[in-house]
Design a protein around this nucleic acid. Structure first.
Length: 808
RNA sequence: GCCGGGGUGGCGGAAUCGGCAGACGCACGGGACUUAAAAUCCCGGGCCUUGCAAAGGGCGUGUGGGUUCAAGUCCCACCCUCGGCACCA
């Protein structure tokens, strides 16, 4: 049987029948929104995509047979840098390059037998879509959730654009791995920090999400509880707020450190003998790379010549500038407690600053002079004025409360997460719908003027470190919507992660020209019941789209405030050495080639059976051979079953195996254990072959077999279904259910253990009494031999399972 | 350092509720068919050990302990490994 020859026939059949079209509003209790991460069209579909999308496809087909209204849409994350790079390299316009790739990939997806509702296809680089990015941006601007600010931002010198925090991995650009530098720029941000607490807390509600994704998001959001403590500059009494999680160590402060980037650093020493040293230090520190500076270990600093007053004791505390103080976290100023913070300890030792012990472990005195490292644990407070004798936890509370009374501090919760920087200095993205007017300032583009379209024609894409749009006068030059004077458009485009933050809502109403989506339709389909994709977006897309959902919820456009009930992360597909596949390494496996060689169904089985869906696959051709062998056997058995008419008896063994298989496959589909579902189907085939099942009975078994295997091998299943005399699609049939009675065996094998070790087996009738089992077990010659004249202490009988004889 | 996964044959892995560890497959070895090969079919296999054989025995799910009649599964301590966060005060 040449499987690949029948595949186009069934693909056409499905398309003509509109098998995968979803209703615009589903039956409420029977809806299944089955979402897979849409694709960046960088060429053709690769094997990683293939794995992702066959999982989604198998689920869609299974759920349809279970009677659900299934929504299984697809689209393209079509903006992004590679399109511009291709434009520079090959002189093709990014749009043309992108749309060509989409064309090629769409055909491949169809040939892979993946069934989408293509009427809902979304392409983010088309104005139909990105105008709603602009619309949402304006809504967020109105709510104060989109704002422009000057700050030190991550800059990728290779991509020549800024990056959000989430897009810097280990100090390098997530896309090109070039080391990131810092720049002070005015950029647009989304205020995700305002949602930090909700994004964190609601993770607890996401029971259907993998623990590791939730852990990553918790780490990333980085909530910490502590206190703001205000030191005052001597003598001006300017406030120097610090953030600390250890107010209990407040009496141990012997210096204060300020980040070199902090504005105060430049001004504190003005006119003092220290001024030059301070300026030199700041300058040389700022010149160092982020990675170099944050390498743990060495700490450098310089004394400013100035002092601050301790909020409790009024003591004069020296002010230092320290290169280990992060400008972007807390207040950019920290209190130095060398006895109880390892970083402060190293710093104090280096510059011979005093060390003062204020917390001691239980029943042990610490001597500041003898400390080898900071004592960072909690303990009993000492040398802490009225708080001496308190335990740390009580001290934290009491000290913060007293600071609050004095107006010199308060409890404070801090997050590590920063606001989402969305400006990009590139062409191929959504224009930011803002106008800069000399007179009126920043003015939003009126809604009726949307979309702000990307200019067409000849554009110089070569990155120069500023947006290519800046050099397109027809785009940049506008009149101010307010004062009608000459003004300029914002030249930047949006981060493409904006596009992917709400595409799942556009699928629900893709042609809407009045709104990004109709809330009624959104409420009918949301939340997404199942989302399937890779783990790489754990703290990127998966954080951003939760944020967008909450914003759109707060704006009143969706009822739900979490987008996805159940999240599944499939494993990667690597080469046989475990190396990541890439075009440059030449170790890629092309799904298109595989379909051409062995067909889609064989490839699908091979990928499903290679490993549990959540684990990495080390790709090997051997898997293809095994899959092909299995499907050939299925087909051969199917044909032999069709041919013969005699043999209508229903052997109990096969009947039972059939129903066990229905049960197992059904349960395995529900728990995403596709490889064991296939193993169960292999076992059933083994039994069918062993028992040489034939005729009518075998045909009825094979009808069920076709249904059970159909999520994995849809084409072969349809072919079998048709040959069995059915006119409609196997996917319009009802998923088989098992008969619990068929699972019951009339005779049951029972294990006989002596002292917990299996020594013999016993066959008894179903429902045999304990007493009978005991007697039979004791009657076993093997058992008699083992027991001999030892004393029988106890007999444990687990009905229908085992009997354990305990002897001494 | 903190947080989260995971450790089972040569390999991918199974064991879903504490009850026969290794299902299913890959690779491998042996055999049948064939002039031959491919394809296909049959047989074998955790490790060690007694035995000519038939048939036995012991050990075995990262390590050490514990609970239990019974532990891959539960509890305690530890080791290794993968991933996330990390000069975050």
């Amino acid at each position: 049987m040449n499987f690949k020859e029948i595949e186009p026939k069934w693909q056409k059949f499905w398309e003509n029948k509109g098998l995968f079209k979803a209703p615009s509003e589903p039956i409420p209790d029977k809806k299944y929104y089955n979402l897979v991460m849409f694709a960046y069209p960088s060429g053709d579909i690769h094997i990683g995509h293939f794995r992702n999308y066959t999982i989604g496809d198998a689920l869609a087909r299974y759920k349809k047979m279970r009677g659900f209204d299934v929504l299984h849409p697809f689209g393209w994350d079509a903006f992004g840098l590679p399109a511009e790079e291709a434009a520079i390299k090959h002189g093709i316009h990014p749009r043309e390059w992108t749309l060509n790739n989409i064309e090629v990939s769409r055909v491949t997806l169809k040939r892979l037998g993946i069934g989408y509702d293509w009427d809902r296809e979304v392409i983010t680089c088309l104005p139909d879509y990105y105008r709603w990015n602009q619309w949402i941006f304006l809504k967020m601007f109105e709510k104060g959730l989109a704002y422009q600010a000057e700050s030190l931002v991550n800059w990728c010198p290779h991509c020549k654009t800024v990056l959000a925090n989430e897009q810097v991995e280990d100090g390098a650009c997530w896309r090109c791995h070039q080391e990131v530098t810092r720049k002070n720029l005015v950029q647009w941000f989304f205020k995700i920090t305002e949602y930090a607490d909700r994004l964190l807390q609601d993770l607890d509600r996401l029971e259907g999400w993998p623990e590791r994704v939730k852990a990553m998001q918790r780490n990333w959001i980085g909530r910490s509880e502590g206190a703001r403590v205000i030191f005052k500059l001597d003598p001006e009494r300017t406030e120097l707020p610090v953030y600390t999680t250890r107010p209990d160590t407040l009496f141990g402060v012997t210096f204060i450190s300020i980040a070199p980037e902090h504005p105060l650093s430049k001004t504190l020493s003005k006119g003092l003998p220290e001024e030059k040293m301070v300026n030199d230090f700041i300058e040389s520190t700022l010149r160092r790379t982020e990675r170099d500076r944050t390498a743990q270990g060495e700490k450098n600093g310089v004394f400013t010549g100035r002092y601050a007053l301790h909020p409790m004791t009024g003591e004069k505390i020296p002010l230092w500038i320290g290169d280990y103080v992060l400008a972007g976290y807390g207040t950019g100023i920290v209190m130095g407690v060398p006895a109880h913070d390892q970083r402060d300890f190293i710093f104090a030792k280096k510059y011979s600053l005093p060390i003062k012990v204020v917390v001691e472990p239980h029943s042990q005195e610490l001597n500041a002079l003898e400390l080898k490292e900071a004592y960072e644990a909690y303990g009993t407070m000492v040398n802490s004025g009225p708080f001496t004798g308190f335990f740390s936890f009580d001290g934290i509370k009491a000290i913060t409360e007293m600071l609050k009374e004095k107006g010199l501090g308060d409890f404070e919760v801090r997050f590590k997460i920063r606001d989402w920087l969305i400006s990009r200095q590139r062409y191929w993205g959504t224009p930011i719908p803002m106008i800069h007017c000399e007179k009126c300032g920043v003015v939003p583009v009126p809604y009726e003027d949307l979309p702000v379209k990307l200019p067409e024609g000849k554009i110089d894409f070569i990155p120069k470190g500023r947006s290519p749009l800046e050099d397109v006068p027809t785009f940049i030059e506008v009149t101010c919507p307010k004062c009608k004077q000459k003004a300029k458009r914002d030249p930047d485009t949006m981060d493409t992660f904006v596009d992917s933050s709400w595409y799942f809502l556009r699928y629900l109403d893709p042609k809407n020209e009045k709104l990004p989506f109709d809330p009624k339709k959104a409420n009918a389909w949301m939340p997404v019941d199942q989302y399937t994709g890779g783990i790489e977006h754990a703290t990127l897309h998966l954080l951003y789209f939760r944020f967008f959902t909450k914003v759109l919820h707060d704006l009143g456009y969706v009822r739900i405030d979490e987008p996805v009930v159940r999240l599944f992360n499939h494993g990667m597909v690597s080469d046989s050495q475990g190396e990541k596949m890439s075009k440059s390494k030449g170790n890629t496996v092309s799904p298109s080639d595989l379909i051409a060689q062995v067909g889609a169904d064989v490839t699908r089985i091979a990928v499903f059976f290679a490993a549990p869906a959540e684990k990495e696959i080390l790709w090997s051709e051997d898997g293809i051979g095994g899959a092909e062998r299995f499907l050939n056997r299925v087909w051969r058995f199917f044909e032999s079953a069709l041919e013969q008419n005699e043999g209508e008896e229903r052997p109990e063994k096969v009947w039972r195996k059939l129903h066990q298989t229905i049960k197992r496959v059904t349960e395995d589909m529900e728990r995403f254990s596709f490889h064991t579902a296939i193993a169960a189907l292999m076992e059933l085939l083994n039994v069918l072959e062993e028992e040489k099942s034939k005729g009518k009975f075998a045909r009825s078994v094979m009808a069920i077999y076709a249904q059970l295997i159909s999520p994995f091998t849809p084409h072969i299943a349809e072919e079998m279904w048709e040959k069995l005399g059915n006119k409609s699609s196997v996917f319009q049939s009802e998923w088989p259910s098992y008969d619990p009675k068929a699972l019951e065996e009339s005779e049951i094998e029972i294990v006989i253990q002596v002292n917990g070790k299996v020594r013999d087996h016993l066959t008894v009738a179903k429902g045999a009494k304990e007493e009978e089992i005991k007697l039979k077990a004791l009657d076993s010659p093997k058992v008699k031999n083992l027991i001999g004249d030892k004393e029988l202490k106890k007999i444990i009988v687990v009905p229908e399972k085992l009997v354990n004889l305990v002897v001494q």
